[in-house]
Structure formats: C-alpha cells, structure tokens
Amino acid sequence: MKKLLLTSVLILSMIALAACGSNDDADAEGSSSKLDELKEAGKVTVGFADEKPYAYEEDGELKGAAVDIAKAVFKELGIEEVEGHLSEFDSLVSGLNAGKFDAITAGMAIMPKRCENVAFGEPEMKYGEGLIVEKGNPLNLKSYKDIAENPDVSVAIMAGATENDYVQTEGVDEGQIQSVPDIPASFSAVSSGRADATTGTEMTVKMALESADNDNLEFVEDFEQPNIEGVPSYGAAAFQQDHTDLLEAYNEKLKELKEDGTVGELLEDNYFSAEGNSVDPSITTESVCSGEVYED
C-alpha cells in the first residue's frame, strides 16, 4: 500500500512538473519582445526635455536633432509614429524606468552614473559647454574655475543636468549653485540678479539666448572648456536595461544611418556641424560609460 501511494505521488509530481514546463514554454513562445510590441503598434513613445536644439516641441510638433535621428532610426525599424512626452530633464530616467515612455531622446549625455540605470544606444552627437552671464560680463567669468575662485558668485543650473557635476569638479561649491527647472528659469535668475551666471551645453544656451532676445544677457564667446571627464559630452538615446532587443536593433540601424551620411545631415539641419558634432566611429557607449574615452 505504501509503495502504491509513493508511486502515485511520484507520478502526480512528474505530471505537475511537466505541466509547469509546458506552461513556461508556452509563455516563452507566446511572449513578444519590446521591439515586436512597438512594431505591432506602429508607434513608439519617447520622453524628451524642452531643450533646443536637441529635442523640443513647436506648434505641436516634436523637433530637434535627437528627435530627428530617433525618428529616422525607428522608421527604418518599421515604426512610423513617434509620440513625444514632455518631461523635466531630471525626471527622464525615472520616467523611462517607470514605463511612462519606451525611450529617451533628448541628446542626453552618456555618463557612468547614468549607465547604471539605463541602457544607452551608441553615441549620436558630441558637444561642449557654454556660459551665459550679465551683459558686459562684469565679473569677467570665462571658465568654471573663475566661478570657483569667487565664493560670492552664484550659478543657476537646470536640475539633473551634467553641469551640476562639472562645475563642482572644477571647484565650485555646492552652495554657489542654484537649482532651476529649465533654461528659461536659469536666464531669469541671471537677468534678475539672483544668479551671476548660468551654464548648459553650448548649443542649448546659445540658441536659447537668441530666441529669448534678452539684451541683459550675453553668451561668453571665449569660454574655456573644462578639461574634465565628461567633456566633450556624447549624446545618445536611452532605453530600459532589459529591452536588449530594442537596443540592439536601434544600434544596428543607427550605424547604417551614420555610415550613409544621414545622421550628419540631420545634425546640420538642426544647427549642429556635421564635422564638429559628429562622433568618431572609435567612440562607443561602452568606452564612455567606463570613462576609458577620457583617459590620456
């Protein structure tokens, strides 16, 4: 009787295990990848911050260099519609990982810290830094070190922007930094006298100042680029770390569009220089994430 009972238990266990295995296989076969999901929908949702010329919205249309590159890549993947979701810059990564959007396309700089939280595509563009000051530059600020050397100087910087780390690396005290939500707020801080300067990526602050038509401010033409890790910056699209199929497919098409000159043309169409802002093929996301690209 005991043998019969034991045999019955073993048989039932084997049936249960087989059933579980069958269900797992069915799930594996039936599940679709993120790339398949987007292709089927024909639409991808991207998070962006309002920052010209990388990504911005104008008359209801999503524009900018990073946006145009992403649109071209997704089109090659068979995904025609790109829907933009405006977000504050420092909320892009958390929004991506919360599933609010499928990708980030904001010209976001690849940084080792960010690489821990998102999967960056290969670099799409490179860029330097810029400084905006009061008209006439009364404090003669030409570098981040100039700000650091005068503890009475304050600088307004967009929350979440890489410049927060850059200025501190150059010696600027955290107490000298005013955190603001966006570029217009940083200009307002300087124009009103609440801050002495503001900084951001070169093209961003230069274009924003031209659009603002603010006679109280000026772009520092002879700004000295900091010699630190992260400068120049390399901008790229970003994805959730477990969406490897989407990342790989995006990188494959991006490489083709770089090689046939499309990416260079799109940079030119968005106020960048195809020669000065394109990325050398030897520069990879892996080398930027590791910091290797900045080693002498």
Rank of each mutant, 00 (worst) to 15 (best):
A26D: 01
E221R: 08
P53R: 07
D24Q: 00
E124Y: 10
D242V: 14
V9R: 01
A197N: 05
V167I: 09
G21W: 02
Y294E: 01
V263G: 09
A28W: 07
N140G: 11
E170M: 12
P138M: 08
E210K: 11
G175T: 04
K71L: 00
G21I: 03
N214L: 05
A159C: 07
E124K: 09
S94W: 07
K100R: 11
N164D: 06
E40K: 13
E292Q: 12
S233M: 10
K3T: 14
E292K: 10
G121W: 06
Y166D: 04
S31C: 00
V153L: 10
G235T: 10
S287E: 03
I11S: 07
F219A: 10
K2Y: 15
C289R: 08
A49H: 11
E29L: 02
A18S: 02
Q240Y: 00
A274N: 13
N270S: 01
E58C: 00
K34D: 05
N140V: 13
S273A: 12
G64N: 00
D68A: 05
F187G: 06
K43G: 06
I11K: 02
A55M: 03
S94R: 08
F120L: 07
A195Y: 13
T162S: 14
D182R: 03
A159E: 15
K52C: 02
F89N: 12
V73N: 02
D146F: 10
V118M: 05
T201N: 15
E149V: 13
E61H: 01
E58L: 12
Y234P: 01
S273K: 06
N117F: 08
E275L: 09
M125P: 03
Q168F: 10
M111E: 12
N117C: 00
G200C: 02
T199M: 14
K135I: 04
P184G: 08
P151Q: 11
N277G: 08
L38P: 03
A249M: 09
F219D: 12
G107I: 04
L257D: 13
E174I: 09
M111D: 11
S191C: 06
L139N: 15
L141M: 08
D152P: 12
D222I: 00
L96N: 11
N214D: 15
N150E: 14
G64K: 03
A103E: 09
